[in-house]
Amino acid sequence: MWELLYENLEQTVSVILFGIGLTILLLQRNLIRKIIGLNIMDTSVYLFLASMGYINGRKAPIVVDGIQDVEAYINPIPTGLVLTGIVVAVSFTAIMLALTIRLYRRYRTLDIDAIMLLAKGEDA
């Protein structure tokens, strides 16, 4: 039942990393740490995708000596998907960090609970 876990070591590690990122996201109250958790989750997904595209004994999908055989190269599609993911992750990390800086300038704290409490106090 669990024999393949060691064979699929990359995927196992990526799943565990995903869980670690999720736990950080849920439990940390510091906004910067939450962002780090989200980035760990991202990275685990890239690892998963990249490992799905690999085929034993085949080469990276760059045509060498004019060989255009399916048997010669690994799957190029996950590589393109990971590229998309990295770009989006960079963008949203930048926006989240900028928002965090604005929140810190306003409330002088990074604790999400304290910020919520102070924001409620402003409304009241």
Binding site: N8, L9, Q11, T12, F18, G19, I20, L22, T23, Y54
Partner: peptide
């Protein structure tokens, strides 16, 4: 939340164990 994460890891690992062999 710890239980949730563990449960999630468990189910995902269960899926990984059913996936095609690496490579």
């Amino acid at each position: 939340s710890f239980l949730l994460a563990c449960l999630m890891i468990f189910f995902l690992l269960r899926t990984v164990a059913e996936m095609p062999r690496f490579g």
